[in-house]
């Protein structure tokens, strides 16, 4: 029963959603809205409660055991509660919650602390790209040499310097991107598309059961 029930749900809902895709009638659209937009949101809310419990347990465990970097867990907790109080602190009469709500604007904390922190993480990508490219472009094998030559041509062709060196370079780059590169990408994408359909059908038909916890 523990296995059969989820399989029956997966089969029924998968089949219904597949049929729904081919029916434009408002009844079908309403079904989609109820299932995907409303049910999913309701379920997600409950899952968030469990997720935050999981978050709390992980960090409490780290702090309790004084694991390496336990102070980062303290920072995580402070951050979560600080943001919560900055958003809802006015509902708590007096105390630190009210104080935080009064003196720390939620939007400002988001825009001037959280957003720059995210941007900082994102900007690390520039350095990581440089270090990864350095490794990838070492012409040790035939493939790496081919990659190095192609990348050099494409990089040069995408900047004005390349066109000033040779007028035809941007056209060569366009050809590389439009034909060999696009052909390879489409090959992967067709395979991915078929793989997605196959996985979906396997789940609907109950052939694939690993997601239930067993093979």
């Amino acid at each position: 029963m523990r296995r059969t029930f989820p399989l029956v749900i997966a089969f029924t809902m998968g089949l219904l959603m597949m049929i729904q895709y081919f029916i434009p009638h408002p009844i079908s659209q309403k079904f989609y809205k109820i299932m995907v937009q409303q049910w999913l949101i309701i379920i997600s809310i409950f899952f968030y409660v469990f997720a935050w419990r999981s978050f709390g347990l992980y960090h409490i465990n780290k702090i309790k055991r004084r694991k390496e970097g336990w102070w980062a867990s303290v920072v995580a907790f402070v951050g979560v509660f600080f943001m919560l109080l900055a958003g809802f602190g006015d509902r708590i009469p007096g105390g630190i919650g009210h104080f935080i709500y009064k003196y720390f604007n939620f939007d400002d904390l988001y825009n001037y602390m959280f957003a720059p922190l995210q941007a900082t993480m994102f900007s690390l990508l520039a350095f990581f790209i440089a270090s990864a490219a350095f490794r990838a472009f070492k012409a040790r094998t035939m493939e790496a040499t081919l990659l190095l030559v192609t990348a050099t041509i494409v990089m040069l062709g995408r900047v004005p310097l390349g066109a000033s060196m040779w007028k035809g370079l941007p056209k060569v780059v366009e050809w590389i991107l439009m034909y060999p590169n696009m052909a390879a990408q489409r090959g992967i994408m067709i395979g991915v598309g078929l793989g997605m359909i196959a996985t979906s059908m396997k789940i609907i038909l109950g052939i694939e059961r690993s997601y239930l916890g067993g093979e």
Partner: peptide
């Protein structure tokens, strides 16, 4: 150990920072 399979963050780069950590 349930605490080893956990929710880290739903923010993309906070998650990346957490996993890097």
């Amino acid at each position: 150990k349930r605490e080893n399979v956990f929710f880290l963050s739903d923010s993309q780069f906070a998650y990346a920072a957490g996993v890097d950590g």
